[in-house]
Design a protein around this nucleic acid. Structure first.
Lengths: 343, 343
DNA sequence: ACAATTATTGACAGCGCTACCATCGGATTG
DNA sequence: CAATCCGATGGTAGCGCTGTCAATAATTGT
């Protein structure tokens, strides 16, 4: 004999079916495709499920059906505030659905991403959400071979693997600089940390806006591959001042850097926005209450997470969106740090 | 006949076993208990696995073994920075192990927590990590009936369900106030938002420290159940000033509030630390670079996450710690905002 | 040297569910 | 009224793996 007989207390689908007076397969259909049941059976199974407190065994379901009800989510960082918001959206919109979220963190390593994708492929997720559009050829091949809906998030571009939700970081960077230029600034510094592909494209927006105004100067640019912190913002700003003392504005690729710049200005008695204008990116909550309040580019991170999951679930269930690419845009939130000083 | 025959390309344990010239069960043992195999077979199976690129089917494994290799993690919030660090620790220390993390978010609702725990119980996780020590009676009963290691994180107390990693929020609050008192302050305000049980205990530390100095005054306390933001810090501080204009220090239950207070002081031209001392909680990164730099209570959040997972995995594998409660302590990081003004 | 013990290995059945037909009654049609 | 179709239901046979126990090989003690 194989093993101990089933613990008497265990409730299987068979028990539910017996109580409802139907075959196990009908009870099974109650979960997968309730419309296929006649109303009477559907009600009988429903009450049997409730009476027994039946909970499906997901492992058995996955084994028999060759599918899971897991949506894999691959992000590059857990520390970055930006992803906290995305994840909130992801979890919010997965709740109430039958799908559960499996999170994986690449730490900004494309090799790690490949490894994770291979792992996911082996487990046959129902859907997959990955960050960005710069997968390696290998990663992209895995994604394309994956037999499930895939959504790329955080940015948009041509040739989606499947679906996309995001916005144009290039446009956002360009818009931020255009705004600063409108304020009459000429020497606009660029501060970048952890130059991932999206930050890179913000830079390109900066560069092209500056070039269009014939104001681009490599001395205005300070970047590093070090992860972002507020403190780093101060440090990079100090470097920038050293190589371009005549700057009249700074565009920071994220709000942490911007806050660091503000603090460094306070330390050096540089008046903001009088002597220097500051623009950040992401519009984290604190930007509105800083003194002076800090201009930033608002990105719809929570909505990105929500939509990504919704789109994936819809696609799983056969409701593919007519448009595979969803542009959630951005808003430039202009505050005191980039407008004429109010005396 | 049941279904289509197995796709020719699919690699099962059987194929590995065949290639290695052993029985499937031996190949199975290679994964679960490699020490039980003779060296020669172990090597043969190992190379067969690599040659075929075999990846175990977790669903089949879970079904057959009545166990999963999932560690459930229940936290109250994804937005709160504090949990980002914890999660980083959690994911870092689960990587490389055979266990995967299943995250669930209660949004600070104890009913939601009950619901999630019930769900987890049904799926038989290998281990469970839950936040805090204030579960409902029902939740606690579920945890105790769960046939797996459980670690409570973020704080410690008597009567753990199983294991605990954290620190005493009461002591931390008390220590922060003691420090402020040592600076000669007498009218120390308390600012609290989202009064969860841990924040509540920080308050008790504040209250008792103040009472011990005969300085407690309800007018010095401003709290709200609204979730924490930097902006809220400014608002609460304004309320506090209104009801106790003579305060000479503020203890904030977290760093966001503290930053909000600092900004509000800048707005009102209140000199910090000259007119007002500020102490925060958690020691987020920005505290060190604020102007003035802000004193805070450093908590070892990343380490909490790491240890929680390690302890759970160790317990799963039979290596129970001698001490079920691990106190990771805290450090008061004294900075400019709570020390005599350096002119 | 031989029984007793221990390390290795294998056979078997079945975990709980669902894919794939087959069936069966009733509605539709010419 | 028989032929056809369709929607609802059920039977059967696994999905890929591991728990249990039995069998065998290697090792040890006296």
């Amino acid at each position: 004999m194989g093993r101990k007989q089933t613990k008497s207390g265990k409730i299987r689908l068979t028990e539910v079916a017996k109580l409802a007076g139907v075959s196990p397969i009908t009870a099974s259909r109650f979960f997968r495709n309730p419309e296929a049941l006649s109303l009477s059976k559907r009600e009988r199974v429903d009450s049997a499920v409730k009476e027994l407190g039946y909970v499906p065994n997901l492992a058995a379901r996955a084994l028999a059906s060759h599918r899971t009800e897991v949506i894999g989510v691959v992000i590059p960082s857990l520390t970055n505030n930006v992803f906290a918001d995305v994840l909130r959206g992801v979890y919010d919109s997965s709740e109430g659905s039958r799908y559960s979220i499996q999170l994986a963190n690449t730490r900004y390593s494309i090799l790690q991403e490949e490894k994770l994708l291979r792992l996911f492929r082996a487990q046959k997720p129902a859907g997959l959400i990955v960050t960005g559009i710069n997968q390696t050829a290998e990663s992209r091949a895995i994604l394309e071979s994956m037999n499930c809906p895939v959504t790329q998030i955080m940015e948009i571009g041509d040739s989606p693997v499947d679906m996309m939700v995001g916005f144009s970081h290039y446009d956002a960077g360009f818009a931020a600089i255009s705004h600063i230029l409108e304020q009459g600034c000429q020497r606009i510094g660029f501060l970048g940390a952890r130059m991932d592909p999206r930050v890179q494209r913000r830079f390109e927006g900066y560069r092209d806006a500056m070039k269009a105004a014939s104001l681009f100067d490599p001395n205005l640019v300070v970047t590093t591959s070090i992860p972002t912190t507020v403190t780093l913002g101060g440090t990079l700003f100090a470097d920038l001042l050293a190589q371009a003392p005549d700057i009249d504005a700074v565009f920071c690729v994220n709000d942490d850097l911007a806050l660091g710049v503000l603090f460094e200005c306070q330390r050096r008695q540089i008046s903001v926005p009088g002597d220097l204008k500051i623009v950040g990116f992401n519009d984290l909550e604190f930007m509105a209450s800083a003194v002076p309040s800090l201009t930033s580019v608002r990105t719809n991170r929570y909505e990105m997470g929500r939509h990504a999951v919704t789109m994936v679930i819809d696609a799983i269930e056969g409701r593919r969106p007519k448009e595979p690419v969803l542009d959630l845009g951005f808003q430039l939130i202009v505050r005191e740090s980039s407008t004429p000083q109010s005396i």
